[in-house]
Design a binder for these strands. Structure first.
Lengths: 246, 246
DNA sequence: AGCCAACGTAAAGGTTGTGTAAAGGACTGC
DNA sequence: GCAGTCCTTTACACAACCTTTACGTTGGCT
């Protein structure tokens, strides 16, 4: 098979992103291999649970694609054991609409879930979403400038305090995290999915209005001091703190 | 400098497009073989469902023509099983006017549907339409330049924003997608069918004016800032954003 | 010219996502 | 236990959005 045709992607100086796939369907792994390599990913596939677990534990991969139906060792077992050692992101693959596996998988710490059959396009989109979020998290863990100003908002992360026109806001821990995220990405849209995972620590479910409530409460608190400073809503996309051009 | 990129549209020197036909009507497959080979396609025909399924799963073909009435294994079954493994485009062939099969087939993930008897000309047209769209999709999932300028329009896909003469447009998600597509193919006609499938996520139906409305609304929003920047209509073909030659 | 299909678009209709008050839980410290 | 704080869920209203309808216009065709 001719597939040693790797596009030179950008990734400025960074090591190539490596993805491990654990799936007994050899034909499928070959297909995925082609697509991901086209997209500039380093790709490895194994077809046995235990073997995959060992590789995944090595932390040599930035992402693991894990089939739930595996001969020998069940995918959920692999995930559970992997989580003893590593926080490497895992995207679960499973037979169509298997809601139970989905729930269990996410509880065990899978980062996302994709039902077979999937289109390569969708797979790539999910992978990118996960990697982007991981990058956001790592960014967060970096030592960040402890103070930051966006328009009338002033962040002092040492004091864990945000001021509006020099009036300190009384925020709960969650509200603070959300607003800090928005401030650190002022000018960019932050998706509700990302906000939920990073600030609330859980995936956004359908009909989950919790995040909306937090945003609503934050808005109210900000409006106490400044009517002009608004968190913008981008319907279907997320929220955005507009970066003024003063 | 005008970065007038036109990606390799045709197949100049590219690997030949392979088409697989699964149909028990031997005479018909021979007829189709002649036409498609004349048109420069690599053509293979098999007359049994299971055999065809195996070949299709190999992902060696860019398109599968699948008869619904098959001895041994029903065409819909073949499609369903194929979809467990592959997203290879499938054009269903079926007895005249069988609306039920058509609906089921499209739901199972067929890409198009053609009623027997068909003219070779129509078959080739459908095949080309599917292949062209697949190419568009693949292009879409390639890493794309995040910023792009067409005449007075400036695209910033990181911010998901399009500006006219530096005035940011307030676009809905759908409008943004349509305009981005047009911009990325500036100078080329983009068919309504393609726009509908890629931006609206559904096939264009007869009397469906939804896309027209989106175009109309986009035009209005652009015209707020620049009367000269126009989306051209090519009656019966699609829409086009003219690439200026500055 | 006259026909007809394709297109433009205003307005109406239907759907979906969001804003927010209020109630319900979960947790903590006393 | 109980009050207090915080997060989440529920419920309803509303706004934004997408689609459909309806009618007018255009452009290719005979």
């Amino acid at each position: 098979m001719a597939l040693s045709f790797t596009l030179a992607k950008k990734q400025p100086g960074a090591a190539m992103t490596s993805i491990l796939m654990i799936d007994d369907d050899v034909a499928l792994t070959q297909l995925v291999a082609e697509y991901l390599q086209l997209d500039g990913y380093q790709f490895t596939a194994v077809h046995q649970g235990p073997e995959g677990l060992e590789l995944a534990k090595s932390n040599a991969f930035q992402l693991v694609l894990l089939d739930i139906m595996l001969p020998g060792m069940d995918g959920l077992t692999v995930l559970k054991q992997l989580r003893q050692h590593s926080y490497c992101p895992v995207l679960m693959l499973t037979a169509r609409g298997d809601e139970i596996d989905r729930v269990v998988g996410l509880e065990l710490g899978a980062d996302d879930y994709l039902a077979k059959p999937f289109s390569p396009r969708e797979l790539v989109a999910r992978i990118k979403a996960i990697l982007r979020r991981v990058e956001l998290v790592q960014q967060q863990q970096q030592p960040q400038s402890s103070s930051l100003q966006v328009n009338q908002l002033k962040l002092d992360s040492a004091k864990r305090q945000i001021c509006v026109l020099d009036n300190p806001l009384v925020l709960t821990a969650t509200e603070y995290q959300i607003l800090e995220l928005l401030m650190r990405h002022a000018g960019d849209v932050v998706s509700k999915e990302d906000l939920s995972q990073l600030a609330l620590g859980k995936r956004l479910q359908l009909y989950d209005r919790s995040l909306d409530m937090h945003i609503s409460n934050i808005r109210k608190k900000i409006a106490q001091y400044d009517e002009g400073e608004k968190i913008q809503t981008l319907r279907g996309l997320g929220y955005l703190l507009l970066q003024g051009e003063n």
